[in-house]
């Protein structure tokens, strides 16, 4: 049984803080027993989720905040990303066809491929809670 560990971060909604998120998450995921390759994919998918928050929820407004809570327990890594921006219509989020090679639109594909659970909660008045969960293979 792996001990519980957690990281909680609140960062400005500016792309330069994506590096901070990646750096904070990596040791947590590695300590939870994921391989370097798996950890790299998890970090990538979280980075994409946060980039989408900046682009779509905050529409490029860098003065907002993104809160991220990551926990690892019993071979499971759960990351909850919270924003207070424009809500997503989860029913309209779909990964694009990879055969259609064009710039953009890969983030959703990465999240869906890397994580076992991708769940959008828009039940609050503003913002979205995105839960990403990965069990160790």
């Amino acid at each position: 049984m792996t001990a519980t560990a957690a990281v909680t971060l609140t960062v400005p909604s500016h792309p330069k803080y994506l590096y901070v998120i990646r750096s904070a998450l990596y040791p947590l995921v590695i300590d939870a027993g994921f391989s370097k390759k798996e950890a790299g994919k998890i970090i990538l998918a979280v980075d994409e989720a946060c980039s989408n928050v900046i682009k779509y929820a905050y529409e490029g407004d860098h003065s907002q905040i993104i809160t991220l809570k990551a926990t690892t327990e019993d071979g499971r890594c759960t990351i909850v990303i919270e924003d207070f921006g424009k809500q997503v219509d989860a029913s309209r989020i779909a990964p694009r066809d990879l055969a259609d090679v064009r710039p953009g639109g890969l983030g959703t594909h990465f999240m869906g491929t890397v994580f076992d659970r991708v769940e959008y909660d828009t039940s609050r008045e503003r913002g979205t809670l995105l839960t990403l969960e990965k069990r160790k293979g």
């Binding site: 980075d47 090679v101 710039p103």
Partner: peptide, 13 residues
């Protein structure tokens, strides 16, 4: 050292 989908988009462009 690291590349995300914006890097991929740059290469596709």
């Amino acid at each position: 050292r690291y590349m995300d989908s914006s890097g991929i988009a740059t290469l596709v462009e």
